[in-house]
């Protein structure tokens, strides 16, 4: 229990299956507070399912999922988990297309989430200042009043990260943040994530090995719903099991 108590995220023996297909089979993972972890693995390794379970979208058949060592995430719904401080960025950038960039951030800003509160909500000065600050961070100040649907793909990815930050989560789950980005954008994103990591724990799921190398953090390799290897990128990349999985058998 010590390991669990000192972790921000603790998964133990998590298994789930859909109609007989075992998406996860005994996945165990520990993220320490302030840690950034990269998770890699081939398609079907269970990366997205793992995210679904942590954020309450999918319920595991068995296993433990604890947040901050004590909160059982398997009993809570998505909204509660998000309010507790777990933010999630999707693989496909999903921003609110018919809202402006600014409104996207307003909606995400940490605040009372009840319908009554939002009905009579009016922004305070601190909130406005915070949004300006975020806009600067994600380099979208000049597009603050544009509809999100008019942003480029990379800008949408950044807006989504901005929305994540606005929630002030303790733990960020980031699913393929650089998919479809140019090399320059990829490097900038890596820098942004490292910046975020100064105050928050981050879990990054990514295919792009160059990006993972750029992050320079501990790597976990998933395969067929379980952890195959764990360690620094160079150690993992030389693991024969990992090579076999990635290069075919």
């Amino acid at each position: 229990m010590d390991i669990a108590a000192n972790s921000i995220l603790y998964l133990d023996g998590v298994a789930v299956s859909f109609d007989g297909y075992k998406a996860l089979r005994g996945l165990s993972l520990v993220i320490e507070p302030g840690e950034m972890r990269a998770i890699i693995g081939p398609n079907g390794a269970g990366k997205t399912t793992m995210m679904d379970i942590i954020t309450g979208k999918t319920r595991p058949d068995e296993g433990e999922v604890l947040f901050e060592g004590s909160t059982d995430l398997t009993k809570l719904d998505e909204a509660t988990i998000a309010e507790m401080g777990i933010g999630r960025k999707f693989q496909k950038p999903t921003v609110f297309e018919s809202h402006t960039v600014r409104d996207n951030l307003v909606l995400s800003l940490k605040d009372n989430r009840s319908p009554f509160a939002t009905l009579f909500h009016s922004s305070t000065e601190e909130q406005d200042a915070r949004i300006d600050e975020l806009l600067t961070t994600i380099k979208l100040t000049h597009r603050a009043y544009d509809l999100a649907r008019n942003l480029s793909h990379g800008q949408k990815q950044w807006l989504e990260i901005g929305m994540l930050l606005a929630q002030e989560p303790k733990l960020l789950l980031v699913d393929e943040p650089v998919a479809g980005m140019t090399d320059a954008e990829t490097m900038e994103t890596a820098a942004l994530l490292r910046e975020i990591n100064k105050t928050k724990s981050v879990v990054v799921v990514e295919h792009d090995m160059a990006f993972v190398r750029e992050l320079g953090v501990k790597v976990t390799v998933l395969h067929e719903g379980a952890v195959l290897a764990e360690g620094p990128i160079d150690y993992v990349a030389n693991d024969p099991k990992v090579i076999e999985v990635y290069l075919g058998r």
Partner: peptide, 9 residues
């Protein structure tokens, strides 16, 4: 679902 993951019920 995005709205849900931001924390709105």
């Amino acid at each position: 679902s995005r709205t849900r993951f931001i924390g709105y019920r």
